[in-house]
């Protein structure tokens, strides 16, 4: 019998079989090389540290207890503050941009493309662009020195300013796009109705535009906050050892300090923070959406 025909007959009697023959390989890959490794990481975080890297069998909470050492608390708090700060700055600057794009008529596509472009541009190259501007011999300092505004270079590298600028520069497009897509869907007749009913521009914005764009604001904030929490390259290249974030702590424990279980515990903490952020934003998203109607 023709194998094609055999397959069609066989699978038509088993509705799940066809679906899973399509989805099986991809699902298997994600389970084997994404989920299983995460479980390994979780297991490692509860095991004693081995003598030559790796772990020994056993069960311990010591790595999680160690995370409460003031040194690591400081790194955790710094990570949270930078991520929240970065999200706030991106919101303050990203919202106006999204608003302008949504009202830009024929320029819309070009303006959206100009936001997407850096979003897909090499993160490493973009971080280097920040270094090129901010280092002591960089462009900003060259200009400052040449114009006599300063007599010695302004120290920007390895400061909170450098890391925050780098984070905002890296993640701003994630904020603009979702806000833009929720503003784009906004029905202009609602604004006309508000105007006819006597609402001033500020009131129209606060009471009509802003509530209706909340889903975009929540999505954008999440898309900025999550990668900021787990960021590694920005703080590594622009912040150095002084401005370590959790991502750098994790990398350091694996590649330098050789304490894999402690690194796993730190890594699992980032993952838990990310999942908490997703969970909170899903709750927030479901609430004000009802209120705005």
């Amino acid at each position: 019998m023709n194998p094609r025909l055999w397959w069609l007959r066989w699978s038509s009697r088993r509705p799940g079989a066809r679906a899973w023959s399509l989805m099986g390989p991809g699902t298997a890959w994600i389970v084997a090389f994404f989920m299983v490794p995460l479980l390994f990481m979780l297991a490692y975080s509860f095991m004693p540290k081995g003598l030559y890297g790796g772990v020994e069998s056993g069960f311990t909470f010591e790595h999680y207890v160690r995370l409460f050492d003031p040194l690591y608390i400081k790194i955790g708090v710094r990570t949270l503050v930078y991520s929240l700060g970065c999200t706030a700055i991106c919101l303050v600057f990203g919202y106006p941009v999204a608003y302008v794009i949504s009202r830009a008529g024929e320029w819309r596509n070009l303006l959206v493309f100009l936001v997407i472009l850096p979003f897909w541009t090499s993160f490493l190259v973009r971080t280097f662009a920040m270094i090129f501007l901010m280092r002591d011999t960089g462009l900003i300092n060259t200009v400052l020195l040449a114009t006599g505004l300063r007599t010695e270079p302004l120290e920007m590298m390895n400061t909170p300013f450098a890391v925050m600028t780098g984070l905002v520069y890296g993640f701003l497009p994630f904020m603009v796009l979702p806000i833009y897509s929720s503003l784009e869907k906004l029905d202009p007749s609602l604004l006309e109705a508000a105007e006819v009913l006597g609402a001033r521009p500020a009131a129209r914005f606060v009471r009509v535009v802003l509530p209706l764009s909340m889903p975009g604001v929540v999505a954008g904030s999440l898309l900025v906050f999550i990668p900021a929490l787990g960021s590694y390259l920005t703080s590594d290249l622009l912040g150095g050892a002084k401005e370590m974030m959790i991502g750098n702590l994790v990398q350091n424990q694996f590649m330098v300090a050789n304490n894999w279980p402690f690194g796993s515990a730190a890594s699992f903490t980032v993952m838990a923070m990310v999942l908490a952020a997703v969970f909170v934003s899903l709750r927030v998203r479901d609430e004000p959406a009802g209120e705005a109607r």
Binding site: V31, F34, P37, S231, Q251, V270
Partner: peptide, 20 residues
């Protein structure tokens, strides 16, 4: 399950694969 790889920080992906 499909959304997990999209939200997981790269550093977490990297070290968990290294462990495996």
């Amino acid at each position: 399950l499909l959304y997990v790889p999209i939200v997981t920080p790269e550093i977490v992906v990297g070290i968990s694969l290294l462990i495996l």
